[in-house]
Nucleic acid binder design. Sequence first.
DNA 1: TAGACACCGCATTATA
DNA 2: TATAATGCGT
DNA 3: GTCTA
Length: 613
Amino acid sequence: MAIFKGRSFILFPNNEVSSINIFENLIKNNGGKIIEYEHDITNASPDINYGYSHIIGLVNDSYLTLNNNKYEIYENNLLLNEMDLNKRKLWEFVKKNNITLVNISSVSFWLKVKKILINQDNIITITKDPGLHLEEISTSDSCNQSTSECETDIGDIINELVKCNSGSSKNLNSNLNNADNVGEVSSSGTLHGLKNEVIPQYNNEIEEDNKSISASSLARNTNGNELLIKTLDKLSKIHTIRGDEFRSRGYKLAKISVSKYPHKIKSAKEAQEKIPHIGASIAKKIETLLKTGKLPGLEIASKLESRKEYFSSCYGIGPVTAENWDSLQINSLNEALKRFPKIFQHDWSILFGWKYYEDWNKKIPRSECVKHMQIIKEELKLLDDSIECEIQGSFRRNRALCGDIDILFYKKECDDISDLYVVLEMLAIKLYKKKYIKCFLQLSKNINLVFDNEIQTTLQKAGISNNEFRSISLTNRPKLFLGAKLSTTIPEFDTSLYTINPEIDVKLHSEDKYMSSSVQANSVSHALEEYPCRRIDFFICKWSEIGASKLHYTGSGEFNREVRKIAISKGMKLTQHGLYQNDILLESFNEKRIFDLLDIPFIEPPDRQELKF
DNA sequence: TAGACACCGCATTATA
DNA sequence: TATAATGCGT
DNA sequence: GTCTA
């Protein structure tokens, strides 16, 4: 079919991205023309009667903003820097002649409905970016005009952006950068969780520790690529929030590779040739980074994502829901609640994600993990002292700070999961009655019995009616997710470990505070008077699968993915249940043997951080 | 240049 | 009503 | 986003 016959298209901001290539081909294959240069327009001279109406401008969706359900494109550096000289001229042409602009994804829609549909819903208006100051752009003087205009208007915003960049203000990005850079405790003898009761103290020397580790392990380079590493990290985070998992991963892998590269990068060409996971696109970004010292549009891009980031920092909210709310101009959880009470009524666990939003975005000092473990172990002993438990996750990897606490339960020679689950459920209910466990995130019949009241009061607090049909799982699951809080009566409560850190802390918007658990502890920022609530995951594993299970729950996620990729390349499959070949179990009990069978050296948990092979 | 990029569990929603 | 797909979490 | 077959 040739639905684009007689039509010409200009792609903005450029044609170089591979995803744009797809659209280019779609257009050509369906009879359309692509305008690349100015002379393409004059060659295909306009119809006397219709002017340039056969020309349509297509804009890469990621440069668009949705304002009152209308698409807008900000004419800023982010956009203009992506255009080469030819494109800039075409851009001027589009503006001068009021050429229609639509988002490029319309192309696939048109093909689906078999006609070109242009209406107020997909037409794009060009606006000056309210949050950005335009630098002079060397090649075009028409852009310079807008520069001066903008600079005078938005001086305040510029100042704020500058502040954000220097990292001194509490912007959302600061927590992004901190994500996995927590210190590593260097006590090589105490690798395996609680078996050794030697507990490294979390103190001010963590920074020191971190440094010494870096120097010795050769993993990080500290000679000049920090800006690039930071930039790649930000790009990765931005695409995670956008829900583009694979592009995010591309940047993440590039970041890790650059971290390992032992020299200062002198040119984009050098980077692309010598460093894995750096291709044409990142090389181009390196070039501008080397030339100008910054990547235009990055701050703006992360600003555009800030609402989504706010939402997806809440337990139960992922990229899709965040995108939905963001595109509807929803600014707070409260607004979302007002518009979609049913979502909160049904997915009631989001309410607890909201309630503990600030707490669950805090890191847990190692020493506190140990205290949690003591409480749980004590209670478990009373119920069934043949069941053992161990902390996995970042704790087993010896991090000084952990995001959550993953506890693995197992029983010698026991492969019956439901047997263990029954005890685990009892344990959880006892701990709930003792007010240690504060909330559950899924229900079983018995947990619902004790916890339903709390759900109802929380629904009430949110101002929505009760949903009498809460789904209750009947099967005995291998996992239990919950939130728990230490009581301050526990000895050695050290407030110095829990001082509020505005640099890192993720804060609820003021209009969302009323649902927060910490709302009564007034808003003045001083040292905490009690422990924050923590995310704790209980996992059960079969005795025969203990090796694979520990490997899985120890992580890191990045490490798991890499090892599993190696398994795939050798025609095997690695999961939490074991290492398989053609669905035949090779090994699941012995952690070390899994490494052997994969023909890779055993790696101690503290070293299971990033790319290793 | 298309397809892979780790894998599985649970709850919910879409589809046949 | 059974099965597939989606969303979120690990 | 990059890598690979």
